[in-house]
């Protein structure tokens, strides 16, 4: 019985077994932060890497993230009390006029798997709703998703609204029609092609 079992459970998608594994580790006096970093976040990094290399696929990444979440739910109330802490808050959402949520949810789950706290505003989100949520949560990053060429202008509008509000937060953008060139053009801080890339990018942006 060790943290390695927790790590392995994430990689094997054993979501039903996860709560007991975590509880056993806690009972055995495991360090909460170590359990989070090495038992839950580390296997998600591995899964993300394997996904980017084309060895794992979307459903497997989702299953791993769900398994990780089962463990995180138990650790979360303990994290505030002492030991570990979240890597930072990230507000995410799909921009105004756009109802696509699958990519956004995937990125949200992987960011959570990377140790971030996620505030998901859902789909068809007004620029001012992003600004308010970023402000009230003191978010370090706002992540914007757009799946339609027709809603990419709303992405630009949201990036501008966040800048005008003078908030100290970075922006990252993604979605099928979005490119690095578009991200640069609208002045977003960063762009990622896939969900694991978004985790890597978010880590860079908060440091």
């Amino acid at each position: 019985m060790s943290i390695k079992d927790v790590y392995q459970a994430v990689i094997d998608f054993e979501d039903d077994a996860m709560p007991d594994l975590i509880k056993k580790e806690l009972d055995a006096g495991a360090d909460i932060n170590k359990l989070l970093q090495e038992g839950l976040i580390a296997p998600m990094d591995y899964v993300g890497k394997k996904f980017s290399e084309g060895e794992l696929f979307v459903p497997e990444m989702l299953m791993a993230a769900q398994t990780m979440k089962k463990g995180l739910e138990i650790l979360k109330p303990l994290l505030g009390a002492g030991g570990g802490s979240s890597a930072g808050k990230i507000v995410i959402g799909t921009v105004r006029g756009d109802l696509h949520d699958i990519g956004k949810n995937l990125v949200g789950m992987m960011l959570e798997g990377g140790g971030f706290e996620i505030i998901d505003l859902g789909v068809d989100v007004e620029p001012k709703a992003f600004v308010e949520a970023a402000k009230s949560n003191s978010a370090k990053i706002v992540g914007l998703s757009a799946l339609l060429t027709t809603t990419m202008p709303a992405m630009e509008e949201t990036v501008n609204a966040l800048k005008e509000a003078g908030l100290d937060c970075k922006t990252m953008v993604g979605g099928a029609p979005v490119t690095q060139a578009f991200a640069d053009k609208i002045g977003a801080t960063g762009y990622s092609e896939d969900a694991p890339g978004a985790v890597e990018l978010a880590r860079k942006l908060v440091n």
Partner: peptide
């Protein structure tokens, strides 16, 4: 149509 890989 929605992706099978996100919901069986």
């Amino acid at each position: 149509v929605q992706p099978l890989g996100t919901n069986h």
